[in-house]
């Protein structure tokens, strides 16, 4: 297991809810509630799920922007779960992040030259040809005009800003990049440009990505392996093709069937085969007992409320395909129609 760049076991992040003058803790938002994952060097792991499933929190834990409440994060064999700021500094060279919103992730008062050179300066990276040259090379790498070195973020479009964010993440030549919804805020035609750029950079610099997104089609395009999250837990994880061809978890099935297909000829079939989940995602403050998805699941039985299904290989899946479900969906199982009204939690 030496090729695992990142290993995460039992990772938890609970945000306390406090009340009153003395900030008495009255509960906790269990944003990430026990996930186990590995990220291998050179691969892209896609992390999908709906809003509030904890995928962004997970990304922030991997980069140690947040400190976990429980569990372990091991990067290149070293436990980084509870390192302090100073101890984390060397880690920052190896792990970088690309943020979702290219408008709020760049300081509007700094030129892009300053923004992109900041990591180099902070880490005291020698730049034999000078800082400016180093930044201009990075700009060229991400497809921006190196002469725009002295411009400010507002002079760039959304897609260009996202490229600036990518250049900044690349400055330290990291091993692992956590990309949190890097293309969600972009127009369709620009999304594809950025996705292609990320792919090119990966092969050029042997990068490893954790690609966090809610868009299942983009995740499928870019990932080697995909993990599906729901209410702070990983529901299913598998190689890309296994997951998309034979989704086992009812939630994965529902999620995939909900994506509108850009093919009007198949409209009727798509709608017939759609699993319509009723209701909303339960609150992560008080998640359902047993399996968290059971309140919206059409296959739920008594055991689902009492026993939490472990994330293991189910049916005759390959060892890399893990599902946390007592009643995984078998191949060609008819899963049509609407789910029953949500059972009381």
């Amino acid at each position: 297991m030496s090729e695992n760049l990142l290993e995460v076991t039992g990772l938890q992040k609970h945000f306390p809810i406090t009340k009153g003058l003395f900030k008495r803790q009255v509960g906790a938002v269990r944003a990430v509630d026990g996930i186990d994952l590995t990220v291998q060097a050179g691969e892209t792991l896609g992390l999908v799920g709906e809003s509030g499933c904890g995928k962004s929190t997970a990304g922030r834990l991997f980069t140690r922007i947040l400190e976990p409440t429980g569990g372990k994060i091991v990067f290149e064999g070293q436990d980084i779960s509870h390192r302090n700021m100073a101890q984390l500094r060397p880690l920052r060279r190896d792990v970088q992040m690309i943020f979702q919103d290219p408008y709020s992730s760049l300081n509007p008062r700094h030129t892009i030259g300053t923004i992109i050179s900041a990591p180099l300066q902070i880490q005291n990276i020698p730049t034999p040809q000078g800082l400016k040259k180093a930044v201009q090379e990075l700009l060229e790498l991400v497809g921006l005009n190196p002469e725009h070195y002295n411009r400010y973020p507002h002079e760039f479009s959304g897609g260009q800003r996202q490229r600036i964010g990518i250049a900044r993440a690349l400055a330290l030549r990291p091993k692992l990049i956590i990309a949190d919804e890097p293309v969600s805020a972009l127009d369709v035609s620009i999304q594809a440009q950025v996705v292609n750029l990320l792919e090119d950079l990966q092969s050029e610099f042997d990068l490893t990505y954790v690609f966090i997104a809610h868009d299942l089609s983009v995740v499928r395009h870019i990932s080697d392996r995909v993990a599906v999250m729901y209410l702070g837990k990983v529901m299913e994880i598998a190689n890309r093709d296994d997951l998309y061809k034979n989704p086992r978890h009812p939630y994965t099935v529902a999620l995939m069937s909900a994506v509108p297909v850009p093919d009007p000829v198949r409209r009727d079939r798509a709608q017939r085969n759609r699993v319509l989940l009723t209701g909303d995602v339960p609150s992560p403050i008080n998640p359902p007992s047993g399996c968290r998805f059971r309140t919206r699941c059409w296959k739920a039985q008594d055991i689902c409320a009492t026993e939490e299904p472990p994330l293991v290989t189910r049916l005759d899946d390959p060892a890399s395909h893990l599902t946390a479900c007592h009643f995984p969906v078998v191949d060609d199982e008819a899963v049509t129609g609407r789910t029953p009204a949500a059972a009381p939690a």
Partner: peptide, 20 residues
Amino acid sequence: SMPRLDREVRDRLIPVKGSP
């Protein structure tokens, strides 16, 4: 530009160059 769930995975997306 759109990756699609109803098709096989393509190696590359074919974006529109430039911006609106």
